[in-house]
Design a protein around this nucleic acid. Sequence first.
DNA 1: GTTGCGTCTGTAAGCGCTTACATTAACGGA
DNA 2: TCCGTTAATGTAAGCGCTTACAGACGCAAC
Lengths: 341, 341
Amino acid sequence: MAAGVTLNDVAKAAGVSIASASRAINGLDNVTEEIRDRVLAAAGRLKYVPHGAARALAMSRTNTIGVILPDIYGEFFSEIIRGIDVGARARGLHILVSGSHGDLNEAVTAVRSMAGRVDGLLVMAPYANAGDLAGKLPVNLPLVMMGGSAGQADLPSLIIDNYGGALDAVRHLREQGCRRIAHISGPENNLEAQDRLRGYLDGLKENGGTQEPIVLSGDFTDNAGYAAVRGLLRGTMPDGLFAANDMMALGASLGLREAGLSVPEDVAVVGFDDIPVTRYASPPISTLRAGVFDIGQRSLELLSVLIERGDAEGGPPPASQTVRPELVVRASSRRLSPSNA
Amino acid sequence: MAAGVTLNDVAKAAGVSIASASRAINGLDNVTEEIRDRVLAAAGRLKYVPHGAARALAMSRTNTIGVILPDIYGEFFSEIIRGIDVGARARGLHILVSGSHGDLNEAVTAVRSMAGRVDGLLVMAPYANAGDLAGKLPVNLPLVMMGGSAGQADLPSLIIDNYGGALDAVRHLREQGCRRIAHISGPENNLEAQDRLRGYLDGLKENGGTQEPIVLSGDFTDNAGYAAVRGLLRGTMPDGLFAANDMMALGASLGLREAGLSVPEDVAVVGFDDIPVTRYASPPISTLRAGVFDIGQRSLELLSVLIERGDAEGGPPPASQTVRPELVVRASSRRLSPSNA
DNA sequence: GTTGCGTCTGTAAGCGCTTACATTAACGGA
DNA sequence: TCCGTTAATGTAAGCGCTTACAGACGCAAC
C-alpha cells in the first residue's frame, strides 16, 4: 500500500546485492563510489523511499516520540505541542500526537496503540490515579509525565506548581484590595484543577482571612467562564475573580463587560497559564505564566535523555522538575487604589 | 527497545502456537473460548502490548495518517489539527504531525520520512511549485493538499478561495466608507498570501476605484501587524486596514490603540481566518471565516476515501473542493456612518 | 608462488507480526 | 467402521529493512 518500490527493487536495478544497496542509501563508508552512484541513481529513477515501519522494526528505533494529551484544542495545547515539536526537530525526531482523552482508560488505549511506533512517550494525564498508567504500559518504554499533580506516582515528570500559583493569584487579588474573591474551577476530576482550587481555598485563609469561599464550577472552556459570571449577576458580585485557566478568565471578563461591569474596577480578574491570547483581550488578562512552551520543550529533553540512556527504569531516580508559575500582572487586575474598605 | 515481550512469549506462556495467540489477541472468531482465555490471561500477566511497527509491516496498514504543516504555532494550526484529529479519531486513526517547514525541500524531507509509517498524507504547503511534491513522493501514497492555491498541480485538495475572500474584505471596507485602504501582506513566497494580496489589489480597482494600493509587508505574526502599523504613524493614516491574517490584524489593532487611534472609527480593521481569539480582542476583529476546523476535518474525510479506495492515482479524477470564506463583521470594522466624504 | 591482511560485496538471519496453507481432530451419516 | 466435512490449531512464509558473518579479491611481503 505504501511505497511499492522496495530496496530490493533498487538493488536489482543497480545490479548489486540488497546489502550494498542498504549501505549506499544509508551513507555507510564501506561502499565503492561506483556502487554508491549506481544505487543512488537507481533509487532516484525508481522513486524509492525507505519504508519507515520496516526500518523501525529492523533497528528497533523509530526516531519518533509519542505525545498523549487530554485534548488538543486551544492555545494551551498548541503551545505545548510547539514546545515539543521544536525540541523534537532539534533532535531529528518526529511526533505522534493523540488528543481527546477524557479519562484514564482512553489514555491507556492511546498509549498502547503507540507501542512499537515510538521510542518514548510524553503524557499529560491530569486524572486521578494516573499513576496506574505505568502499570498498564509496555515495559521498558521511557515515559515522561507533563504537568499533572505533584507526586503523581514516581514517574519522571515535569510538574507545574498549581497550588503555589493559585496561592499567588489570591494573594495578589487581596493586595489589590479585593475582599470577596470568587473562583471558577476546572473540571472536577482534573488534578491540576483540584490543586488550583486548593490553592484558592488556602489563600483565602492566609493571614487570618475569613472570607467564605465562592466556587463556581467550570470546565476550562471560555463558555464556562462566561456562564459562571452570568450566574452571579443575580446575587452580590464578588470584587475579585480567580479563574482556573485563561480561557475561562477570558469568558468571564467578556461576561462582566456585557453586564456593564468594569474590569478591574468592579471586578479584578486573574487567569492561569498565560496563553498568548491574554494580552490581546480587553483588558489584557492577568495570569500565572506556567511557561507552557518550556514545559513541552523541557519534557522532550528529559525524555530524550531517558531514551539515550536506553532504559526506562533502573539507573538513578527519575529526575522530576517542578515549575513555579510566575504571576503576570496586566490590566485586568491592576487597581490604582484599594476599592472598598 | 520498545516492548520486550513479544507475541511469541505470550504464545509460549499460554502453551499455544503463535498463530493462535495472534488470533486470540485480535479477536478472530476461530479460536476456542479456552484458548482465548489462556492467551489473554498470559498477555495480561506478561503485560504484552502489540508492536505497532511489526504489525504495520505485516499488514501494510498503519492506521495512521501523516500531517505536514508549514508550522504548528498558533490558533490557526491548532484548529486545523483539531479538525483533523476529530475526524481521525472517528475513524480510529492516529496522526503523525510534522511542522515547521520553511520551504518545499523541508516538506519533501518530511514527507519521505513518513513513508511506510502512514496510510496517507495531509499536506499544507503554501509554496510556489508545491506541485513538485507529487513527483518526489513515494508512488501510491494517497495525498490531499490543504489550503494552498487553486489549481496547485492536479492533486486532490481542499482549496480556500483566498482571492475571493480578500475581495470581500475590500468591498466590505469600502461599504463602511473607507477611502484609503491599506493591506498588510503575508510572507512573499506564500501562495495564500499572494492570492489575498491579489484580491486586495483587484478589490481596489472594482467599480472604477482609483486608490493607490498601500501594501505593508508582514509575515503572519502579530508582531508584524504591530510593526506595520507603527511604521505608518509618521505618514497619512489609512482609514481601512485589511490584514492577510487575524494575528496580524490583532497586532495592528493593538498598535493603533496604543497610538491613540480608535478602531473602527479612525481605522477599520479586517483580518482573515477567523481564529477563535478574534472575538476576545478589543474590539473584536472582523474577519473572513475560512472554517479552519472544517478544512481539517474535510481534508481527512477526503483522504480516507482515497485510502479506502486503495489507490492514489487512477480512478475518477481527484475531487477537489473549494471553500469560499465567509465575511464575519465584528466591531473592528462596523461604522455607524461613512466617515469622510 | 605462497601467505596474510584489509577491504568490499554478498548471503542469510532475524526484527514481531499476520495469514495462507497444511495438519489434525471431531463428528455425523452411510 | 469408515469417509467426508467442518472447524480449530499449527507451520512457515513473508512484510522491507539492517547487519553479523562469510566469501572474494587485490596487494604487499616473504
